[in-house]
Design a protein around this nucleic acid. Structure first.
Lengths: 148, 148
DNA sequence: TTGTTAATTGATAATTATTATCATTTAAAA
DNA sequence: TTTTAAATGATAATAATTATCAATTAACAA
């Protein structure tokens, strides 16, 4: 996991380089994205910030995520049901393990993916540019809690 | 790739067993899902059928896909932009290779995925129930056509 | 420090894929 | 053929995201 402060500074730096203004709302959103604890959702970021910024608009959260995404500094984990999650700490494609009970998202360590990508490129004659790998299951915590 | 007719008959059989009525619209939709050539979209199925069924409603396509999905006879490939695609020919999770230009979807042959699933389960202590693996890139046809 | 300007914000309307509703039609069984 | 519950078609409702626009504000210059 990359250092949170380093990521935060890096994203802010990139915004400055590209001539974007640094607003308090923008900084607060980037701080959360840089940490990306548990891979936050738009709603989650909004909820975290509305105490400190009572006038914070959902549109501002959407806009800033889009901006940081455009700069390649956040990974969007889009789900078909609209429950999108974000990772500004590791903004490059990597596998995820997702608990279908508590919605926790964990990053596993997988070495064989690069080799797999090569096999797929060779077999299908595609030029592979990106990938998305999700495993869905039930985490240890939820297993311990039982069915209910 | 499973035989199209076999899949078609299998799905129809399952519907009958569960007491669902067999309508012409339903049969036509299932025929397309059983083949799943290129992994059709809702809109694509609707377009294919509206000549033969001028009164066909989009709602009917959605409803029947949902029904077949409930019976576990079609795999839904949901994408965050809403461009969902369906595979009733191989209704179980399997990797896909997706061309970002022409939207073609191809099934690669990958042996190492089962092993990978075991590694992930062991490392994260999740009980893995499902997965989703997509590779995105540019297919041979689109590469040949150049950039434009 | 103050003034200027263009970008950003906040509030809300518009958009779009999907689901829900409901009157009408129809498949299936008697 | 009759009966009845399910399916269809048309359209309204829903929900996440994007667009719009007036008001605000960050950044730069004087």
């Amino acid at each position: 996991m990359a250092d949170h402060n380093e990521r935060f500074e890096g994203i802010v730096q990139k915004l400055k380089e590209n001539g974007y203004k640094i607003t308090p709302q923008r900084l607060a959103i980037i701080r959360i994205l840089a940490k990306s604890e548990g891979h936050p959702s738009v709603e989650g970021i909004y909820e975290q910030l509305k105490d400190a910024f009572p006038t914070m608009s959902l549109a501002t959260v959407y806009r800033n995520i889009l901006l940081v995404k455009t700069l390649g500094e956040v990974l969007e984990l889009g789900f078909p049901d609209g429950s999108n999650r974000y990772d500004g700490n590791k903004p490059y494609p990597h596998p995820h393990v997702i608990c279908i009970r508590c919605k926790k998202i964990v990053d596993p360590h997988l070495e064989s993916l690069d080799q797999m990508k090569k096999e797929v490129a060779s077999e299908t004659r595609f030029k592979i540019l990106n990938h998305r790998l999700d495993f869905f299951g039930i985490c240890g915590d939820c297993m311990a809690k039982g069915v209910e």
